[in-house]
Write a protein that binds this DNA or RNA. Structure first.
Lengths: 161, 161
DNA sequence: CTCCTAATATTGAAGCTTCAACCATCATAT
DNA sequence: ATATGATGGTTGAAGCTTCAATATTAGGAG
């Protein structure tokens, strides 16, 4: 499975890779730092609440939510449990199906509304204040390309072989 | 501190942001999945070993290593402890200073050499196989811009205010 | 020489994620 | 009816990271 000569990265790829690794390490940390400090929750928890707040009827099937949030169902389930304990979300079985909804409560909605401005401000400062319009478009395009490749390669045998 | 009207994201920024969030969530997960499966360690542990293997005399001051690895000193210290237990790294006090070196052992070097091909192959599959040369350059450039903005904004009052 | 401070690193507890095992429910075929 | 399997979700343990508190040591001030 691995007897072939390894395809090393060329200089240009090395450089791109190092910055990408730095980015995927530091950006999440920075987002969490702000959200913990100002709202006493993780960025991921905020993201889940935000997704629910945008969903029709402020509810989403757990599996669908996990998908949108880029998380495993297990991770999501734990998070929903925590958010439920805080009174921001509740579970609701779906009649003709074996699934459940995660439903944003009124206090939960209030919490997102409260947290959103600080979050958005942080996103501006951490990212967009350093980019002009053209760079934003480039980011969206290149990001989409990267995501596509990621999904493709993961679909084709998760990870390696 | 937050009585001003929030600067919301415009449509273009929204789109860029969502893909960026997906990226910083999924890419680390994919890297960890491969490294766990094939080498029984985290991507971060591999990264630390790799940094040491490239350093002069295969050693680096802990604070310097933390910096290069984009990690807190605390996180690094825990990781070095784990790697030490595995026999891949050892600590060594620095004579004229209150610091310590993390030193890659011979087995540690062997481990990186062993793990590198699979890792690089994964990086190709997850990322570079989806990019042409021009896109790689764009990624490096844009990534550098993002990192600069990140560092700048973090330096100017960590996170929010 | 001794006290004070700053720099460097370690530690333990708490919290989050992952992994694997498990439970529940619906669809299908026998 | 009932076994079978597949879908959707939950759970507990183990491991990793963070946070705050704590050593430890070097460099200066008096």
């Amino acid at each position: 499975m691995s007897s072939e000569a390894p395809r090393w990265l060329d200089a240009s790829q090395q450089q791109a890779w190092r910055t990408l690794v730095a980015l995927i390490t530091r950006l999440p940390a920075a987002l969490d730092t702000q959200m913990q400090r100002d709202e006493d929750m993780t960025h991921f928890e905020y993201f889940v609440l935000a997704l629910l707040s945008e969903a029709p009827d402020r509810r989403l099937r757990l599996s669908a939510l996990a998908d949108e949030a880029n998380a495993s169902l297990s991770r999501l389930s734990h998070v929903i449990t925590r958010l439920t304990k805080r009174g921001w979300v509740c579970r609701e079985p779906i009649p003709g199906s074996r699934g459940s909804y995660a439903v944003l409560t009124e206090p939960g909605y209030a919490k997102v509304v409260d947290a959103a401005p600080g979050h958005v401000e942080t996103v501006h400062r951490l990212v967009f204040d350093g980019l002009d319009d053209s760079e934003v478009r480039t980011l969206a395009t290149l990001g989409a390309t990267l995501l596509t490749q990621l999904d493709t390669s993961i679909a084709a045998g998760t990870g390696k072989a």
